[in-house]
Design a protein around this nucleic acid. Sequence first.
DNA 1: GTCTATATCTAGATAGAC
DNA 2: GTCTATCTAGATATAGAC
Lengths: 231, 231
Amino acid sequence: MTDKMPIDPENPLKNSAFSLIDESMDDDESKGRIRLSNELIILAAAERTFSRSGFKGTTMAQIAEAAALPKANIHYYFGNKQNLYRHVLDSILHEWLTPMDDITPEADPKTALEAYVRHKMRMTFERPDASRLFANELLHGAEVINPLLSTELKNLVETKAAVLDGWIAAGKMKPVDSTHLFFSIWALTQTYADFDTQICAIQGEAAHTPEAHERATNHVLSMIFRACGLE
Amino acid sequence: MTDKMPIDPENPLKNSAFSLIDESMDDDESKGRIRLSNELIILAAAERTFSRSGFKGTTMAQIAEAAALPKANIHYYFGNKQNLYRHVLDSILHEWLTPMDDITPEADPKTALEAYVRHKMRMTFERPDASRLFANELLHGAEVINPLLSTELKNLVETKAAVLDGWIAAGKMKPVDSTHLFFSIWALTQTYADFDTQICAIQGEAAHTPEAHERATNHVLSMIFRACGLE
DNA sequence: GTCTATATCTAGATAGAC
DNA sequence: GTCTATCTAGATATAGAC
């Protein structure tokens, strides 16, 4: 399974079932070129800033500075802080909840799990801010995304856990608690973004080199494979 | 290894090497009974409130309400918000960084790791607010505790990783990346507190029953044992 | 030692000139 | 469509009565 193809943050599976935004005014045609470009700049700046300081900890002035735009423009484009936050979360959600697609009854367990874990690790290293923003939202009760978690995510996990149970029943892998295995995969992978501070404190700046990323990926893969008796 | 003995939040290993507080005015004798009692009430209220809403998201008024004391009293006892936060973090740190003591060269790998994992899982379920507060601090760059992480914690992990490497060299367990194994244990255990919202969304309120706690503990133990070839 | 009343400051939001 | 100047709400912190 390749580890090369980078993830394009600007193309998160349009028309996904997951969305926090009410009016689907996503048709880019109706927006001016400048507006569209500025919105993307603001969203990127907001993701970085919210990620570092949380919702309350972030000020509109900080976002404006990060976007190199006057503060009032942020309000002009997104109305208020809450609404901007929802848009940022929405742009992350698609990517976060979709890479499980590889896990199907017909797939080979080792190949499918490796693809999934590698996908999660790549997201962790390429978009750590997105991971931390999502983590922060969960950590504080997920007021905004809870509705989506208990419907879409719940269904998704139940479906995929059933696939794992099928593999186990067919003797293709060792018995594991399939639902908890997903919690474990999320925990093992996302910790490299969410608690990067701690990892850096222990390993130093070297934790950010490609070699360190590969070492981490191999470790996590090994954990999952051993858990499933796949090596 | 027993899973029964509860952790006493009011007795976190006095005289530990880890501390964020400058003046060691911890000698309880010099403080009035009322002051001491009120300080504990405030610290507990602050832990809950900071945990739910983060540092900026928490207001002194919320803490005062949770402590059932007038707002001005919080300032009277702790001076300002920052200082109160440091005290709360300090009271958590001891517990967080010490339960690795069981991991010594002489110990049996399976017994020692099981004790450590069970200890972490118990803390996760008994003091989820403390776990989330710590997670939040890391997530946002650990401005307050970074100094301690890159000294005390770094040393601790290096020492304990060497113990694991010794076990591996002695053929007592399968080769693993010992440093990353600690990251994995922390991630696997703390996820049940930090991302409880997500787990609840998937498993429902049943996630909070003793049976669910046991199921989670067994799953995590199994993950670690299989990773180390200990079952 | 306790708490009410208040000063001060910060940040979200907007009016209105350009 | 852009941005300066300003309003207002709400939070930290404290002065001073009890």
